[in-house]
Amino acid sequence: MPEHPTSPEDALRAIQTARVAAADAFSRHSWRYDLVYALLAASMVASEALPNGISLLGIGICVLCLGWLARAWAGQHGMWIRPLTPKKARWVAIGIAACIALLMLVSVAATRNGHADFALMLAPAGFVIALAGSRLWRHVHRREMTPVP
């Protein structure tokens, strides 16, 4: 294939080849990312069971770690794909965020009503939701990026 496509067909082929290569590169070693991501999401849910000031500190640390995880992933793979970019994958990302936010709110309510132990039991649910959601997002994203034969 020429380096500078001369026909529209060559240009489209070059775009499709680049999209497939990007999707392949993005999927390598994805379990490590997904497990750390899920652990951080669960930690955010569990942080809500802590007293007020400490819970904010815990959530802040988790958010900073999520940012570090994204930067490390982008540095390792030479690119960062925004979770809201593809249309169908966008809704998966929004669903994950809504579920984790809901768990955090339930955890806050439980802690404020004296049931911090129940709030801590929500952390494994946050882990499972984040891990399953991340894997689903990756699957949907890959399907959107690769051409249908």
Rank of each mutant, 00 (worst) to 15 (best):
M104D: 12
V108Y: 13
A119H: 10
M104C: 09
H115D: 06
A98L: 14
L120K: 11
A119C: 08
L122D: 06
R112H: 03
F118E: 13
A119D: 11
A116Q: 05
L102K: 04
L103P: 02
V108D: 13
M104S: 10
N113P: 00
V106L: 07
M121Q: 10
N113S: 12
I96H: 09
I100N: 01
G95Y: 15
L120W: 13
M104F: 08
G95M: 14
A110Q: 15
G114F: 00
A97G: 05
R112Y: 02
L103K: 02
V108L: 10
F118I: 09
L120E: 11
I100M: 01
T111K: 11
H115K: 08
A123E: 03
M104R: 04
N113F: 03
M104W: 06
A97Y: 13
T111H: 13
L105H: 12
S107M: 00
I100T: 03
L122K: 08
T111Q: 14
L105A: 09
D117V: 03
L102P: 05
A101Y: 11
A123H: 03
A123N: 04
P124N: 11
A116P: 01
A123Q: 04
I96K: 05
A125N: 11
A109C: 01
L122M: 05
A97I: 09
V106H: 11
L120Y: 14
L120Q: 15
M121A: 06
G114P: 10
T111L: 04
L120H: 11
G95H: 14
A109G: 04
I96F: 15
A125H: 15
D117E: 13
M104G: 13
H115M: 01
V108R: 09
G114M: 08
I100P: 02
G114R: 07
V106A: 04
G114Y: 00
A125C: 15
I94N: 00
F118D: 14
L122N: 09
P124S: 11
L105E: 13
A125T: 15
C99R: 03
A101D: 06
I94D: 00
V108P: 03
M121N: 06
N113C: 03
D117W: 07
S107G: 05
F118V: 10
L120G: 11
T111D: 07
M121K: 07
A98H: 07
A123C: 02
A123L: 02
L120T: 06
A123Y: 04
L102V: 06
G95L: 15
A109P: 01
L103Q: 03
I96M: 10
V108G: 02
I100V: 10
I94L: 14
G114T: 09
I96W: 14
N113E: 07
F118H: 14
A109L: 06
D117T: 06
A110F: 09
A97D: 01
M121V: 00
A98N: 02
A110G: 11
A119R: 08
V106W: 15
G114C: 08
A101V: 02
A125R: 15
L103I: 00
